[in-house]
Design a protein around this nucleic acid. Structure first.
Lengths: 193, 193
DNA sequence: CATAAAACTTGTCCTATGGCAAGAAAACCT
DNA sequence: AGGTTTTCTTGCCATAGGACAAGTTTTATG
């Protein structure tokens, strides 16, 4: 088995030839983060992205009133990227922080560009990944309008149970668009049902 | 002046060579829609996208309770596309409908693929357009959590006054995540200030 | 371990927004 | 133009979720 390399889980043999894999893998660099390390800080421009091999990561913004609003959670197999900052080369409003110690695989912008423009399957997959992120965000966004907080919580519980189990209530609450107090009450309601 | 062609506003001379323009423009087809025509219907897979030359377009989803929720508005110069359905080749949950008579420029998926893989500037621009849509959606999404309905309305008023002026209150309201009744009250409050 | 710091729960009261219904105004036929 | 439909406004009351504050439990750290 040649599946030892973590990146085999990201770039699958069915989508990439052996030659392509040989071009791609060496460009990734393994990096570790310690709990609370920032992968990206507000005001800077993101110059790399990561695939998470192990650990938990959170992205968040600070709103005009100074509230911390979680925008996403990432764990094994997920891509950690601020699409906008990375591709538009803009300073970001977003922060990305390790919630636990993490091992990640990092690729920088220039290398990405080379691979993107030279390898068709790489750019197809990149596009698919971006569109999938768009899709999640859209779902989340519609859910904020259409569903009650409780339904959003139940859906998160079903779709990402590892987030519920590993992320503090206050981070989950802001992600769901409510306060930690309300989420605590929702939880109680749910457990009493 | 060789600016007569509408698409010159989309594919700018600074980003595309004359040869590229000659490859791209002929692939677009001018189409008209009459008020209330559907460009895309829930359950179908989007096989083309459009640039709006004139008119107003709205996209919306029907939630589980049957409520109509506007997800976006489009007018001159905007791209009308369901990114997810177009690129993932999935049946969509979204509807896209002309709010007025419209003239649009249409490109289909296969042609898009050819241009995307063959012309570097075309794929750079395509990626930028997608990322910009992602950015708007993210802003909208954070605003749903961080801001009061009134602030969202004021921001829309400032950033897209043509939407306020051309779209019915109930469509704007669902886009902002409130009822038309509440929006009517907000409007009153604002006008009384 | 001890003790400080987070994280979580719970109580009381408050506010933004919703639900419903009835008018008023505007837009759309034919 | 006259009537019909849609859009918008307004009133009354209901409710999801927020604000603040005080506990309690868990976790982190010297």
């Amino acid at each position: 088995m040649k599946d030892q390399h973590f990146l085999n889980n990201i770039f699958r043999a069915q989508d990439f030839s052996a030659e392509e894999i040989d071009l791609i893998f060496p460009e990734f660099k393994q990096v570790s983060f310690t709990k609370s390390d920032f992968l990206l800080q507000e005001g800077t421009t993101e110059n790399q992205y990561w695939f998470v091999e192990s650990g938990f990561v959170r992205s968040f913004v600070i709103d005009t009133e100074g509230n911390d609003i979680s925008t996403n959670f990432y764990s094994t197999g997920d891509i950690v990227i601020d699409w906008t900052s990375f591709f538009l080369r803009n300073p970001t409003r977003e922060n990305i922080q390790a919630l636990t110690d993490c091992i990640c695989w990092q690729l920088d912008f220039d290398t990405f560009q080379t691979l993107f423009h030279n390898i068709r399957s790489f750019r197809e997959q990149g596009r698919t990944t971006l569109v999938s992120s768009y899709f999640s965000l859209k779902q989340q966004s519609v859910s904020m309008i259409a569903d009650q907080a409780k339904d959003r919580y139940l859906r998160l519980m079903k779709e990402k149970p590892h987030v519920i189990q590993n992320v503090s209530l206050k981070h989950i609450a802001s992600f769901l668009g409510i306060t930690d107090t309300s989420l605590s009450r929702l939880r109680k309601e749910i457990s009493e049902e």
